[in-house]
Each structure stands twice: as structure tokens, then as C-alpha cells.
Computed example of a mutant assay.
Amino acid sequence: MLEDLKLRVMNTAKKAQRDGLCKHKSGNFSARDAETGYVVITPTSVDREDLVVPDMIVMDLDANVIENQTGLRPTSESLMHLEIYKTRPDVMAVAHTHSMYATVFAVLNKPVPAVVYEIANLKCSKARIPVAPYGRPGTPALAESVVEPCKEADVFLLQGHGAVAVDETNIEEAYLKAAYIEELSELYHHALTANGCQEPDSFPVEELQSWEYPKEIKFPNA
């Protein structure tokens, strides 16, 4: 069932480990099938390099396991993924990472401001990467904590925990946004350090919302 989607979620999880965004079995990934509404999600407590496609688990939005071919359990943070899908029906994929710099700001409970313009691609409606209030991993409290942040932006931090990115198209794009969270967090950290812990300049919402593809570029037959 949903073999192609399982492969893509598995490959993304392995890429996250190779890229250093997840270590020591941390983090989890999921994608939703548009036709069935089912969610393919990574299992708990498995080294990603050992994963095979049948290890991927299929669930419905009520947290019922529909398929787990190898008997593995879905990630303990499944409720968080499912709550995001229920809160944002447009979302088709979720990437949760424990990358270093993003987690530093999650520990500090400090949103990451729009210090570079690229944050405009992350649908941050308040020109920042927000922080979800603390919820114990694996609990309904964690799931509830992400409701407002995922309405505000496609990227957010989990207080004392890690980072989450969502996307309306696919798991690959969700992962790319997770990578951007880490890059922006690292830039912000270095800017604070270089500036004597003084806040650097950042872009206001109005500026980020003003971007458009340049009209000066002309195409044939246009």
C-alpha cells in the first residue's frame, strides 16, 4: 500500500541523517496520500540507515495503524503529525528534525527573525520562525502545542525540542524547508555573535510580502 510514498518518506529520513539534521534515531517524517487521506510515517527507534520500504507505517488521521508490514510502531510523535494535517488540510508532508542551531533557539524559546530575505519562501506571516510552547514528546499536549504555530508559518520550532516544517506539495519540499530552518538559525546565531549579542536588522512583513517575479524578464510568445 502506497509503496511510492513509503519510498519517498524513507529516502527523506535517510537524507536527514546523512545531512546531519537528525542524529541518534531522532526526528520523524510523514506524507499524506491525496486519494486515501492516509499518512505514511516513519517508525520509532530505528536507525535510518537500516530502514527498508516495508518499515514505513500507514495511519489514518484518527491514529489508527492501517499497515505496519514489519511490525514496527509509528513514531511516538505521530499525534503531532496528525494534528498538523487536521489543522492544515492543505499540508501534504511534515518534516521534524533535531538540527543543531534550530534546536538551540528552541531551547531558548526564541523565535528566529527574518534576518535574510529567503524566509519569504517559508510563509512566515509574522516575519519570523515561531516557537510552539512546550509539550512533552509523544503526548496530546505536544500535538496541541503546534496548532497555532502551523497556522502562522510553514516552519516553526518546538520549545526545548527541535524544528518542524510542512509543505503543501511533497515530503521533499518539506525537508528543504527544514534545511532552511537550520540555515537561517545558524545565520541568526552568527549575526548575534558578531554583533555582541545585539539583535541584527530584520525584514518587516510588508517587505517580505512584496516580492514578485521580475516583470523585466521577457519570454517568447508571451
Rank of each mutant, 00 (worst) to 15 (best):
K126Q: 13
K126I: 03
A127M: 10
R128M: 07
I129K: 01
P130G: 01
V131A: 09
V131E: 03
A132R: 06
A132K: 03
P133W: 03
Y134L: 14
P137L: 02
P137Q: 04
T139I: 11
A141Y: 10
L142W: 02
E144P: 11
E144T: 10
E144L: 14
S145L: 05
V147W: 02
E148H: 06
P149S: 06
C150D: 04
E152T: 13
E152G: 02
D154Y: 07
D154I: 11
F156R: 02
L158N: 01
G160F: 01
H161Y: 06
A163I: 00
V164A: 01
A165Q: 04
A165K: 00
V166Y: 04
V166I: 15
D167W: 05
E168P: 12
E168R: 15
T169P: 02
N170P: 08
I171F: 04
E173G: 00
A174Q: 06
A174P: 13
A179M: 12
A179S: 14
Y180T: 08
Y180I: 06
I181N: 03
E182Q: 08
E182S: 08
E183W: 06
E183N: 08
E186N: 10
L192C: 04
L192W: 03
T193Y: 09
N195A: 14
N195F: 09
G196A: 12
G196T: 04
C197A: 13
C197R: 11
Q198E: 14
E199C: 07
E199M: 12
D201L: 14
D201S: 14
F203C: 06
P204K: 02
P204D: 07
E206Y: 00
L208Y: 00
Q209V: 05
Q209L: 14
Q209A: 15
W211A: 09
P214G: 04
P214Y: 11
P214V: 12
P214H: 09
P214M: 07
K215T: 13
K215A: 14
